[in-house]
């Protein structure tokens, strides 16, 4: 293999190297790449929003399907612009209240699902040491999250067990992720040495 002659590969390779230069310190190459990434990605996101939202969810339903219900979110969306006019900014609270209310309303059913799934999963179907440890771990972790009692005496001891479980859990998750992260780096090195420089195939 030989060094790449594609302009796009060169651009991608130089941008890759400039991002890595951040590991040494903040420098003009990183600043350049950072601004390019932010600038291009925001342009890309705006295009996505224009295509998927304004055209697909407002223009088409309104003009082609004559779905006039779309006028309600259209007005809510436009109310957001009241922030640009002094003295009228309070109108933007209306769409904000709507989206926050939506988020809160939706979270309750999904939290129930989580709650039931976890409680049911903790019920030991088979009696093994592992299942008993899981039960002790779940109970002590849950007691760690008690806020209305002071963590001292017996509760203090139980929460200490809970913290131990939490730290072991975090350590395990940490260890399980390390190799995945290293493989990402290997992927970029393969691009630089293979696709760009042609040193490896």
């Amino acid at each position: 293999m030989a060094i790449s002659t594609s302009i796009w590969i060169w651009i991608a390779a130089l941008l890759t190297l400039s991002i890595y230069s951040f590991l040494y310190k903040d420098n003009p190459f990183y600043k350049f790449s950072e601004k390019i990434l932010v600038g291009i990605s925001i342009g890309y996101t705006v295009s996505i929003y224009f295509h998927n939202t304004i055209i697909a969810k407002v223009w088409n339903p309104l003009v082609h399907d004559h779905n006039f219900l779309v006028i309600v979110p259209l007005i809510l969306g436009l109310l957001m612009f009241s922030r640009l006019f002094k003295g009228k900014a309070y109108l933007s609270r209306i769409p904000i209240a709507f989206v926050v209310g939506t988020g809160c309303g939706m979270s309750i059913p999904s939290s129930f699902e989580n709650l039931f799934k976890q409680v049911q999963g903790t019920m030991p179907q088979v009696f093994t040491i592992g299942n008993i440890i899981i039960l002790i771990g779940v109970l002590s972790t849950l007691i760690y999250f008690f806020f209305s009692v002071e963590h001292k005496g017996i509760i203090g001891k139980v929460t200490r067990v809970g913290i131990t479980f939490i730290m072991i859990g975090f350590g395990a998750a940490f260890g399980a992720t390390i190799m995945a992260r290293i493989s990402l780096f290997i992927g970029r090195i393969q691009f630089l040495l293979g696709d760009w420089l042609g040193i490896i195939s």
Partner: peptide
Amino acid sequence: EDLIKIIIVFVLIIGFILGLLGHG
């Protein structure tokens, strides 16, 4: 929220005892 947690703790303990007597 803590009250609900206490209920969950009790449900888990009851589940454990029933499971121990039933399956164990």
